[in-house]
């Protein structure tokens, strides 16, 4: 039995990550330590979490441009709420997740029931969330709650002194849950179905409206969770934070092998997309002489490679059809 072609992009992603890691290791043997691995997970935790939501959205053939602003809003919301009220952070988290999930659901509702393009609706959501964050404060608000200090310093010491932080673990759990939802539930099958063709999905009995609302609600939930993680990571809330993160998340999803037009991809691929981007950054830090803009250049090239790979793959499968 030959390899299923749908696996090619995923394998390419993992392959690129491993090759990249090998190159880095040969140049800087210190790269192969649990410290680097721990930092890779911690530094990219918020991106990984929001990218899981984005993967589901893109699998359905949609896009969510609001998530970067929602992360910034979340940080500001948490910081301001902790400063102004005496609520426990966990209560604030719960409140925040309800708000961002409802926000996503509302966008999903607009997209489906008013038949508006996801691009425009979530673009409006992007400005809205950023604007509300500014309304709450225009300054960076530090978070100084004892519970927060505990969260920040929560880690498990791996052999070799690497720190596996709480937020790093949270990201891995998010990826796992995202993968189960996408690949092992009826909801996930509906997401793939809509991505493969909305009309056909409807003919096969998918409740397109409900599924669309749930998809964007899930993305909102993930953006909120990512906002919490980002506030733990930075210890503050700032309305100008994470500008453009939605695009970085989309890049991670595409480098992770998910096809931008929807219907094919793996959540686990997105994890490797995020890690590959983190790896490039780590390499530049290790090198010390390279400008950090090289990160963007390499990410740009990788995106190009993956888009070409997807085109090639489509042609390959088309040839396969003609041959059979």
């Amino acid at each position: 039995m030959s390899l299923n072609p749908r696996l090619y992009p995923l394998l390419a992603t993992i392959g690129i990550f491993l090759v990249g890691y090998l190159i880095s290791y040969l140049q800087f043997p210190a790269m192969l330590s649990t410290r680097v691995v721990g930092n890779l997970l911690t530094d990219n935790a918020y991106l990984g979490i929001v990218a899981v939501g984005m993967t589901i959205v893109i699998l359905s053939g949609g896009i969510d441009l609001s998530v970067g602003s929602v992360i910034a809003f979340s940080g500001v919301f948490i910081a301001v709420m902790l400063r102004e009220t005496s609520l426990h952070p966990l209560a604030v988290f719960a409140l925040l997740l309800i708000i961002t999930t409802a926000f996503g659901a509302a966008m999903g509702w607009l997209i489906h029931f008013l038949a508006m393009p996801a691009f425009i609706v979530t673009l409006a959501g992007m400005f809205l969330a950023r604007g509300v964050a500014y309304m709450m404060t225009i300054d960076s608000v530090a978070i100084s709650h004892p519970f927060y200090s505990m969260l920040t310093s929560a880690y498990w010491l791996m052999p070799g002194k690497g720190r596996l932080t709480l937020i790093g673990v949270l990201m891995l759990i998010s990826v796992l849950i995202g993968a189960i939802i996408a690949h092992r539930t009826r909801f996930g099958a509906s997401v793939f179905a809509i991505g493969g063709g909305e009309q056909t999905a409807r003919l096969m009995g998918v409740n397109v409206g409900r599924t669309t609302v749930l998809i964007y609600a899930f993305s909102g939930l993930m953006a909120g969770l990512s906002g919490i993680v980002f506030s733990i990571y930075t210890g503050s809330g700032y309305p100008l934070a994470t500008v453009g993160t939605e695009l970085t998340a989309i890049a991670a999803v595409v480098i992770g092998g998910t096809i931008l037009t929807g219907g094919a991809g793996y959540v686990i691929g997105t994890l490797f997309g995020v890690l590959t981007m983190g790896l490039i950054q780590t390499y530049i830090v290790f090198d010390g002489t390279l400008s950090s803009w090289w990160t963007k250049i390499v990410i740009g090239l990788l995106l190009l490679v993956f888009i070409l790979l997807q085109k090639g793959l489509l042609r390959l499968t088309a040839f396969g059809e003609a041959g059979s």
Partner: peptide
């Protein structure tokens, strides 16, 4: 749907489930 497996297409909407998972 050509992007789903044959099995998924055949059982879509009536997937056998265990513990809520397909």
């Amino acid at each position: 749907l050509p992007n789903l497996t044959v099995a998924q297409n055949l059982t879509f909407g009536r997937e056998p489930r265990r513990f809520g998972m397909v």
